[in-house]
Amino acid sequence: MGAFTNSRALASARHIADPQPTNARTEPVWIRATLIAITFAFLGVFILWPLLTVFHEGFSKGFGFYVETFKDPITIKSIELTLLTAAIAVPLNTVFGLAAAWALTRFKFRGRQLLIALIDLPLWVSPVIGGLIYILLFGRHGTIGPWLMDHNIQIVFALPGIVLATTFVTFPFVARSLIPLMEAQGHAEEEAALTLGANGWQVFFRITLPKVKWGLLYGIILCNARAMGEFGAVSVVSGHIRGKTNTMPLHIEILYNEYQFAAAFAVASLLSLLALITLFLKTYSESRTAQQLREAQELTIVSK
């Protein structure tokens, strides 16, 4: 039991348990090469090429025109709205995701599994439904609608509705990223911190949070990317009021419908740029999270 206290011993133990050398492969080289080539071709055609087309079309009327597109006040308003929506939805979901992950991994209670499944709900339903939910709740004929009308509160077809719909569809990302990580890390360190005199907040900020920081970042990045790019749910609750309730994705559709193709792709290229940055950040934080997860699991194997 005491033999596996360092990773070298662990590795050698694994080797003993599984004698098949892990470097040699049984497939011939040409199969490997073909598979790799197919993967690159797939990526190239379905991801790289459309992305390049977006930028190409966006610049098709010249760099000056590209810049002019972003000076249009309605376009600027749509960018502002997208940023504002993300700025509200992402922190909300971060706080919620942290709280949910913490409660679900630190307490055992009935219905825990059901709650974990429910958190995933926004990922299963069509985004359109995500928007319709709010119409059914807050629309003129909705559950709380009449009360809102009487008190002159506008939720759907205005900013609050857009934020709600966006929050709904991006709900699970932070929680899903944190739950397996916190589950694997266990709460021994948190208990140790308690015995050393740290109160709840100190445990959270000094122990819990730093341990999950890469997983948290990963979740936030995904949440943000989706929040900025969401179309379906927002389209249902937006009302499409020009210069007021059109986010970037909606605005791109409008530009496209007005035959302003170069402008539409110019704005789309901004979203694509965001996607690329997100991809880069995501890859980096993902590898760090995986590393933390591995370390936590190794520690668990060690303790068994």
Binding site: H141, G145, Q154, V156, G239, H240, I241, R242
Partner: peptide, 20 residues
């Protein structure tokens, strides 16, 4: 004057649902 555009039926539906 603020403008909103969309399919006619869809827009009517939105007004019924509270688009002001």
């Amino acid at each position: 004057i603020e403008q909103s555009h969309g399919g006619s039926g869809k827009q009517a539906r939105a007004v019924i649902d509270g688009l002001p």
